[in-house]
Simulated assay, not measured.
Amino acid sequence: MFALEKLNLNELAILRNAIYTKHGYIFSKQEYNEYFQKLDWYTPISQDIELKLTNTDNNNIKKITDLEKRLKKIRI
């Protein structure tokens, strides 16, 4: 089993955004565009992908986001 708690904030952000990439999300942040453009399976299509996200996608995004928030509080 994969333990999210072992990841740092940057790794969590990449993992969270990878969920969006599988639906062809075009990122507004240059750092994510540059990161995901290197992957041969990533095909940017649209910024409007909310309706394409599954319940599992949304649940995973929430889990990752919640952990990111907790880690950011610890860093303050």
Score class of each variant (00 low, 15 high):
9 L>H: 04
59 N>M: 11
76 I>G: 12
70 R>C: 05
1 M>C: 07
39 L>E: 09
69 K>W: 03
74 I>K: 14
41 W>G: 02
59 N>W: 06
14 I>P: 04
50 E>V: 05
26 I>N: 01
20 Y>A: 02
63 K>L: 12
35 Y>F: 13
51 L>C: 06
17 N>L: 09
33 N>P: 00
31 E>K: 15
25 Y>C: 10
2 F>Q: 06
21 T>F: 01
9 L>R: 09
58 N>I: 12
24 G>R: 05
25 Y>D: 05
68 E>C: 06
63 K>R: 14
5 E>A: 06
44 P>L: 11
49 I>K: 04
28 S>Y: 08
19 I>L: 05
49 I>R: 03
63 K>S: 09
72 K>A: 10
73 K>C: 08
27 F>Q: 10
37 Q>A: 15
28 S>E: 13
21 T>Q: 04
71 L>H: 01
72 K>C: 07
73 K>R: 14
6 K>I: 10
51 L>D: 13
55 N>Q: 15
62 K>D: 07
47 Q>C: 08
44 P>A: 11
58 N>H: 06
17 N>T: 08
45 I>R: 13
61 I>C: 02
39 L>I: 13
57 D>I: 01
42 Y>K: 07
60 N>G: 02
69 K>F: 06
9 L>V: 06
27 F>V: 13
9 L>K: 11
16 R>H: 07
68 E>I: 12
30 Q>N: 12
31 E>P: 00
5 E>T: 09
18 A>V: 00
41 W>P: 00
47 Q>H: 10
43 T>H: 07
48 D>K: 14
21 T>C: 04
33 N>R: 15
65 T>C: 02
53 L>H: 07
23 H>Y: 08
11 E>K: 07
13 A>K: 15
31 E>S: 14
18 A>D: 11
13 A>C: 12
24 G>A: 05
7 L>N: 04
44 P>Q: 11
41 W>A: 04
29 K>A: 14
2 F>M: 08
12 L>I: 12
5 E>L: 03
66 D>H: 08
5 E>C: 02
